[in-house]
Design a protein around this nucleic acid. Structure first.
Lengths: 188, 188
DNA sequence: ATTGCCTATGCAACTCGTTGCATAGCAGGA
DNA sequence: TCCTGCTATGCAACGAGTTGCATAGGCAAT
């Protein structure tokens, strides 16, 4: 389990309320670790009870009060411990891969529009990454440690999306070829 | 949720018992969808109750009896329906990316051995993929529909591992550079 | 005026997934 | 001989994650 740790990293980069964290998880961090506001609120309360984070009530006008959290000493220590633990193997859930193998027992052509939609969303994400890179890292020769590490993670995201786009093109070409062949021959 | 569907695909490719499925999920299918034997047994019982799979008791000598499952008509229909549904966005859990960003608040050098271990396991997986490709697809010009689809998924796995290896090398170079700089300058 | 959306937090109920353990016979090695 | 490990299935308990709903004030558009 590492939601606690993802939250700690986010709070170290910038303190914030549960709600703000939830939005960050929808945007930047969410590319590497997803979480709903429910999980975040629950885990934040547990972390506060354990002394990992400190909370400060902030009154706002025109808006509900919010509790701004920041990482506390024990939280940083827990994060350092976690860093030194070996990563547990990631549990993979690659739904599209399952669907592609499933298509062999149905009509491969039925998957084409699905894969195309997938391709669009990956192309959009790549564009957002590249835009974010230009915005947040205009000068790649003058980065501090934090930015260096953020950037190497971003490079990973960019390369992943490029690889995925190329593969989805490969998948589409394969599905289209099979659909052609299927029309040419008798349906099996 | 798609464990049902992953099981259906596996049973369509080859009928088998819960135990055999669990082992397949540890090996081939498990690259795209992980599951423990507990999940598999539970879901198989539900699928049998729903008529998605048919079970046949098989007596064995020297071993406990096993129930061999195979996909039934309603299961195939459910799979076809699922193929036509849009994929829900995958929930991403990229622990290493979180750790890399976390390293900014600790010692980046502490991550190096961790990333190296990661790199080794991805290199080993790539080797296994390439070996499996040679074994299962010796003649790429004579593939039927099922093999074509299996192969395009395998190509995705291979490209993913290649991309990951290149990125991990990038990460290692970055961490080592930061560790050098950290020794040169004062610790912050 | 009403509708809908945004900020901000939370409860309750549920499903999904993991972990530990149990059974039970057989095979192989120390 | 005892211990370990493999096949084969399963129960029970727990923790993680999701979904639906509730509150509650403010803002903007219809």
């Amino acid at each position: 389990m590492a939601l606690e740790h993802a939250i700690l990293v986010s709070l170290l980069e910038q303190p914030g309320s549960g709600y703000e964290l939830a939005r960050r998880f929808d945007r930047s961090i969410g590319r590497f670790w997803t979480a709903t506001h429910q999980q975040i609120y629950r885990v934040l309360r547990r972390m506060e009870a354990d002394g990992w984070v400190a909370a400060e009530e902030v009154a706002q006008d025109g808006r509900p009060d919010k509790k701004v959290y920041s990482a506390a000493g024990p939280g940083r220590a827990a994060l350092a411990d976690w860093l030194r633990e070996p990563v547990e193997p990631e549990t993979v859930r690659h739904e599209l891969a399952v669907k592609i193998r499933a298509a062999a027992f149905d009509d491969p052509a039925a998957l084409i529009s699905e894969v195309e939609r997938h391709r669009e969303s990956h192309a959009a994400l790549l564009a957002r990454y590249l835009h974010g890179e230009q915005r947040d890292f205009p000068d790649l020769t003058a980065l501090d440690t934090r930015q260096e590490l953020q950037h190497v993670v971003l490079r990973g995201g960019i390369e992943f999306e490029r690889m995925t786009l190329a593969w989805l093109d490969d998948v589409l070409a394969t599905l289209r070829r099979l659909a052609e062949d299927g029309r040419g021959r008798a349906d099996e």
